[in-house]
Design a binder for these strands. Sequence first.
DNA 1: CCCATGTCCTGGTCGC
DNA 2: TGCGACCAGGACATGG
Length: 271
Amino acid sequence: MPELPEVEVCRQGITPHILKQTVTQVIVRNAKLRWPIPDTVQSMIGHSVHKVERRSKYLLIKFSHGTLVLHLGMSGTIRVIDEHTPVAKHDHFDLIFAHHKVLRLNDPRRFGAVLWFENHIDERGLLSKLGPEPLSDDFFHGYLFTKAKNRKVPIKTFLMSNPIVVGVGNIYANEALFKAGILPTALAGSISESRFDQLTDIIKQVLTAAIAQGGTTLKDFTQADGRPGYFAQELLVYGRAGKKCKICQTTLQEVRQSNRSSVFCPICQTD
DNA sequence: CCCATGTCCTGGTCGC
DNA sequence: TGCGACCAGGACATGG
């Protein structure tokens, strides 16, 4: 599920089901996620949800005395379901509420995380080391150009770097670079300010459109099937290596960068 | 065997 | 030479 639009749609979807509801039980079936689920998650019992926020791809479920931090990793999904719904394979964590609904985390690969920040303290600095939200005013014209000065890293790796900007994963990095006409292998420090500004606008557009489409197809997170939001969006390059560019019909090519696949059109995209 | 939506961490390199 | 910034790749676990 995990690109930013999917997490945001998830946040919007679960919020009305859990806001102001009181936790009655916390079940940890398998604590071995990316980090062990701490015993302190039990402190939510008897407390109610004040707010449901998102920072980067982290879901923040806020209580008066702390914050439950959820990350979906590469394969996690969250649903709000009836408490009698049978437990399925990879259902690792339940947050049960007084109105008999359950927030249930399923994560086959277990790269996700369930953490508790007492008094909002982020011991690992997970949230404090993050760059700006791409849809906020902190991600503005000139920002990427300034950050990229003297950087020799490929633009695609640069875009996917959380200290630079959060929420741009492999799918949207590929899609945004195609739309901006920039090769993923172009060096970040060699890209002009105007092209960076155009790329900034495109990233905002792509993420906004994905949230809007995910929001319409996935507005209720109480269903058993959770189709990721990006399936609703037409993908121009991601997953299309060897197929024809939808703009110029040239065969799309693939390279690996930092152990991730990048797909691009050798005609539509340039250094 | 190959590949896969994330990201922390390690170890190596580079430049001041 | 020292040190910090930067960068590539490994690691995690499961399924298609």
